[in-house]
Structure formats: C-alpha cells, structure tokens
C-alpha cells in the first residue's frame, strides 16, 4: 500500500486475436481494484468492539474527532427518515393514480417526471418504475442481492424486506411468502416478481378496492398500506 492509503495494482490480460498472441498490461493507482479476501479476523472491522452498539459509538467518536462527520448532520438524516419520508408519499401517489386516469397513464408510462413534480425524487428513487396490479397479474418487489428499495416513496425498508428469508424465497415461492403476510391470490392471477438488481426502483400500484367509488384522495390514501406498494399486501377495503 502507498503512503497516502492507495494501492498500486497491476494486472495483465492475455488473449489471442487474428494476429497472434497479444498482451495488455494495465498499471494504475486505485484505492481498490482487486477484492482482498481475508479471514474474518483480518478485516479492519474486527478491530472495533464486538458489541454492535459500542461499535457504532466508536466509529462515530473517531469520525467526529477527525472532522469527517457532524453529529448534527446525523440527527438531521435520522429525522428525515423517521419523520419526513415514509410510505405516506407512496400512498399519495397511489391514491392520485386511482383518482386521476391521466395521472395514472403518465405514471405508468414514465414515472420519473410525474414523481419529480410531486416532489418525490431523491436518494434511492432516481429511476422509478411503477407496475400495476390487475386481475391477471400481481406484482411483487424484492432485492435478492442487497436491499434496494424506493426510499423517497416508502422510506427505509422494513426489517423483513432486508431479511435472508424474504431475499431468498420471494423469487422462488412468492405465493408462500404472501401466505406469511396472510395474502392469498386468486388461482388465475399470475405473479411477477421484480428483482431490483440495478439502480431502478419499483413501486407496485395496488388494485383499487371495491366499494371505494366516490372516495376522495385523502380517504383513499388511508387504504394504501406500505406492504401493498411492495406487493406483499393488498389495499385495505373500506
């Protein structure tokens, strides 16, 4: 490792083309080009206290002392996701889509400009796609590789969304997962599971419950649950 904390890495590629053997050598300075796999006790993180609460405290202390983080900024971030950004945003979008056919058509066609106009843009919601549940198709969203989730519309993902059980099972047995939520789909309804493997984030537009004719946007919003917008629930019947 170099003194300034960077690694000097070299790697070579070799192959054959029409003119014979070629060699391409790449030399460069990178913070990290190749994965450096260690046994678990060699990772720097193992130097921190083993109790998670103390581990976080230690990191916060070191980073604050070094001038790399401002505890007041941390409070601000926490306040944002505890109090300002949550599933109410998504419910607003769904209720509007149920009430306004033109809004819904635009939302399903190209969600980003429509959501930006409502102020629902930001980190982890830069590229949104809204998928509509119908009598023929029920949509569900998962991230099997990590925990990708549309933060500006739904807030921080619930614990179950980040759990191994959901990540492993949702793609293979969505109906059994839905059963864990007490949801049973009609036999004729197919399931489409969206695995969020890129920076595109998905929001499910649940089916509008029967008996909601004439309800205004605010009343409809109350029927839209967070789980129904992930596809692990259905909207509440009034």
């Amino acid at each position: 490792m170099l003194r300034d904390g960077r690694y000097l890495c070299k790697f070579a590629k070799r192959g054959k083309c029409g003119f014979g053997l070629w060699t391409f050598v790449y030399v460069g300075f990178h913070d990290r080009v190749m994965p450096h796999d260690h046994s678990d006790h060699d990772h720097p993180h193992s130097l921190l206290p083993s109790d998670p609460a103390l581990r976080v405290k230690a990191l916060e202390t070191i980073l604050t002392q070094k001038g790399l983080i401002d505890p007041a900024a941390l409070d601000e971030i926490i306040d944002t996701y505890e109090n300002k950004i949550g599933p109410k945003n998504g419910a607003h979008v769904v209720a509007r889509a149920w009430s306004d056919p033109e809004f819904k058509a635009a939302l399903l066609e190209d969600a980003d400009p429509v959501l930006a106009e409502l102020g629902y843009y930001g980190r982890q919601g830069e590229h949104m796609v809204v998928v509509e549940n119908t009598e023929a198709v029920h949509n569900m969203v998962v991230c099997t590789l990590c925990s990708c989730y549309p933060w500006p519309l739904l807030g921080i993902p619930p614990g179950w969304y980040k759990s191994d059980a959901y990540r492993s099972r949702a793609v293979r047995e969505p109906r059994k997962v839905l059963a864990d939520f007490g949801v049973t789909l009609p036999e004729e309804q197919a399931v489409r599971v969206w695995d969020s493997t890129a920076e595109v984030r998905y929001l499910v537009l649940p089916q509008r419950p029967e008996g909601t004719e004439g309800m205004d946007e605010a009343a409809l919003m109350a029927l839209v649950t967070r789980d129904s917008m992930i596809g692990c629930g259905v909207a509440v019947s009034p």
């Binding site: 807030g155 921080i156 759990s163 059980a165 990540r167 793609v171």
Partner: peptide, 18 residues
C-alpha cells in the same frame, strides 16, 4: 441468495417500526 432453500418464514412488521 435468491432462490436459496433453508430460510424460514418472513415475519411481517407494522409500519411504525422503522
């Protein structure tokens, strides 16, 4: 882990738990 066998039930949570 997509498709892996061996994990248990998914445990739902209410929306107030962040």
């Amino acid at each position: 882990m997509g498709g892996r066998f061996g994990d248990g039930a998914v445990v739902p949570e209410t929306e107030d738990v962040i």
